[in-house]
Design a protein around this nucleic acid. Structure first.
Length: 639
RNA sequence: CGGAGCAUAGCGCAGCUUGGUAGCGCGCCUGCCUUGGGAGCAGGAGGUCGUGGGUUCAAAUCCCGCUGCUCCGACCA
């Protein structure tokens, strides 16, 4: 590094008490060690005047290293020393509020698309989140490990996921030409590990977890920390002998997740989900933080607690319509009428009467999906119905080549396999395409169109009825911060992870896996906890608990009071940030609001009467208190 | 991977249409002054205009290629 290093300076005279003084985070109350400047003056605040460092060609730190060491601890930080640069203006590349605030408050800086550095404040938040996660994992009986981030590609071939993940994996080659990947997840590694360790049912069950940096070469990183290519994740894996055990392990993790989000202090919902590429034979839930910035649509019932990812959500089937009174179908010329909207216009029918046909390629084979004109095909459901590995919308050219009909004119009676949504049956008097330039009216599903294969393959819509209680379904946006799966034997079978039961029979281990995006939780929190002035940290994850702001650091009384409170609080285990900068009050207040620590103590003119102000960031509520009262109040709030 | 946009000082931007050797605000440094909501005055530092090529006497500006970043879509534990 080209940065100039501080040159050695002569040691500062330090009172003899220093060596014996307990470190501030030792939990003992009392004044901090007395530090004197080289001139022998007691240093009132922060060493602002502690040491006059001789300046050479380069600027040297104003404060002497010895002073720093004697006065530092995880509970205390002077803002003049903090590696923090707040931004007054909104960076042009950030248009999601959590991203803007993380940059402005100096939590993170971008390195590349989807790759960020965590600065001290951001690191403290991440650390707190991961500490909570660790505590709850441990409390749930899981054991921490750390698995390789650098993994043999061979392992991914064994599970068949090397191809599944494809370009999503960062691939590297070692000096011997061996193919390796940067781990996007760890099912393979852990299963391979466990397979070698477990022989007997006596060794089961257990759950292992790790907190790791993971790598996914996302096609489109997004919105700051919401979708990263290098990100932090806690992942846990459970190993059981039977379904019952797996249920217990799953439940333990599910409950631990609830405690984690409760402790962090954000609103979340556990929703039914689709297992997606990770596979899995049992249940799965996603933990969603509700936020407009979220990438997922969450469906929730107004009346009961049913909620599901839209990929998974089902409503009650719509009542089927009969064919009574519907005239025989008739062919009409509809040249150029390609879209549903066109049909509605030209034929004067309702969207809900139209039978929409969409052509897909399922593992390369053409398949048509037929849904009502006002409904959307749910590709996840369709893919699951077809048991396909890959499903993609056919291009217009492909549609014509495969079906012989142009897009918009593919009839539901086509010869390629057609999957009908179950709610197609709700169409009484329908309209369907009938080849290029024609449609048919008075079409009755079942009568005029043979429903060869019927399944739920559409997205629910707002207003559909809850499958559990019949209440109305509503949509929300959510950020997926956690996902728990019952994997069953998918990986254990692929890797031969087995055990011998009581009878000496070889059996396959049942697995569960449980992910939690620790870095993604940060923007999720901020999305929920901010106002126009900045972040509003929940106490449990705030980088510090209290921000002490002496209004004028040239006022000796203010400095003295602020420092005293700072040291007492820190010694009592409160995490305190002291704004000892010689800045104007406005600047300090703006920064304090932006950084968003839960409590702010303003030490101003009223200190003459022994009073300071304690302000709650979230509510704006201000209390004028004596120093002692302030100390007690803060202590009780934080502890 | 498709579509769109952007790239000029640490940050936010102007300059480009009509080529003549770079500017504004904020921040930063020095001094004075000021200290309860991003003050004021004076002085100052800082830019191979993303990159490679081309056109031209002359390119931030015109042309071509590349790269990076952002957004929309596709994709997605």
């Amino acid at each position: 590094m080209a940065e100039p290093q501080p040159r050695p300076v002569q040691p500062v005279a330090v009172s003899g008490a220093r060596r014996r003084a307990p470190l501030v985070h030792g939990g003992r109350t009392g004044a901090g060690p007395v530090v004197r400047s080289a001139q022998g003056r007691p240093c009132a605040l922060s060493g602002l005047c502690a040491v006059d460092v001789v300046r050479g060609g380069h600027h040297l730190p104003r404060r002497h290293p010895v002073v720093l060491m004697a006065r530092q601890g995880r509970n205390m930080m002077k803002q003049s020393q903090l590696f923090l640069n707040t931004l007054r203006e909104v960076p042009a590349d950030a248009d999601v509020v959590s991203h803007q605030l993380m940059l402005r408050a100096g939590l993170i800086r971008q390195h590349a698309a989807g790759v960020y550095s965590f600065l001290p404040l951001g690191m403290r938040v991440l650390h707190k989140i991961e500490t909570i996660v660790r505590e709850e994992m441990d409390a749930a009986g899981a054991q921490e490990v750390m698995l390789p981030a650098l993994q043999l590609e061979e392992l991914w071939r064994q599970s068949g996921r090397s191809e599944d993940y494809g370009p999503l994996m960062f691939r590297v080659t070692d000096r011997h030409g061996r193919a390796m990947v940067l781990g996007p997840t760890h099912e393979e590694v852990i299963t391979e590990l466990v397979r070698h360790e477990v022989r007997s049912y006596r060794q089961l069950p257990f759950t292992l977890y790790q907190i790791q940096t993971k790598f996914r070469d996302e096609a489109r990183p997004r919105a700051g920390l919401l979708r990263l290519r290098e990100f932090r994740m806690k992942d846990a894996y459970s190993f059981d002998i039977d379904e019952e055990g797996l249920d217990r392990s799953y439940r333990a993790m599910f409950d631990a997740y609830c405690r984690i989000f409760d402790r962090i202090g954000i609103a979340y919902r556990a929703v039914d989900a689709d297992p997606g590429a990770i596979g899995g034979e049992g249940g799965t839930h996603e933990f969603m933080v509700l936020s407009e910035a979220g990438e997922d649509t969450v469906v929730g019932c107004e009346a009961c607690n049913y909620s599901a990812n839209i990929e998974k959500a089902s409503g009650q089937a719509l009542p089927a319509a009969g064919s009574s009174g519907v005239p025989a179908k008739a062919r009409v010329a509809t040249p150029g009428v390609r879209t549903i909207d066109d049909l509605v216009q030209t034929l004067g029918v309702a969207k809900a009467q139209v039978l929409k046909v969409v052509v897909y390629l399922a593992d390369g084979q053409p398949v048509a999906a037929c849904v009502r004109g006002d409904h959307e095909v749910n590709e996840v459901k369709l893919k699951n119905t077809l048991r396909a590995r890959h499903l993609e919308l056919a291009s217009p050219e492909a549609v014509e080549a495969l079906t012989g009909y142009p897009v918009g004119f593919v009839p539901p009676t086509i010869s390629i396999p057609v999957v009908f949504d179950r709610d197609v049956a709700s169409v009484a008097d329908g309209v369907a395409a009938a080849g290029a330039g024609y449609h048919e009216v008075h079409v009755v599903p079942g009568r005029d169109v043979v429903l060869t294969r019927v399944a739920d393959i559409r997205n629910v819509t707002e207003g559909d009825l809850c499958p559990h209680c019949g209440g109305r379904l509503r949509f929300f946006r959510g950020i997926e911060v956690g996902h728990v799966f019952k994997l069953g034997t998918k990986y254990s079978r692929a890797f031969g992870a087995t055990y011998l039961d009581e009878k000496g029979q070889e059996r396959t281990i049942l697995m569960g896996c449980y992910g939690l995006g620790t870095s993604r939780i940060i923007p999720a929190i901020i999305e929920q906890c901010h106002d126009e002035d900045g972040i509003i940290w929940p106490l449990a994850v705030a980088p510090f608990h209290v921000h002490i702001v002496p209004v004028n650091v040239r006022d000796e009384q203010q400095v003295k009071a602020a420092t005293m409170l700072y040291q007492r609080l820190a010694a009592a285990g409160v995490e305190v940030l002291l704004d000892d900068r010689d800045e104007r009050p406005g600047v300090k207040f703006k920064d304090a609001d932006l950084i968003g620590l839960p409590l702010r103590v303003t030490v101003g003119n009223r200190v003459a009467e022994g009073k300071v102000e304690v302000k709650v960031r979230k509510t704006g509520e201000v209390q004028v208190l004596s120093l002692e009262e302030a100390f007690q109040t803060i202590l009780h709030t934080v502890k």
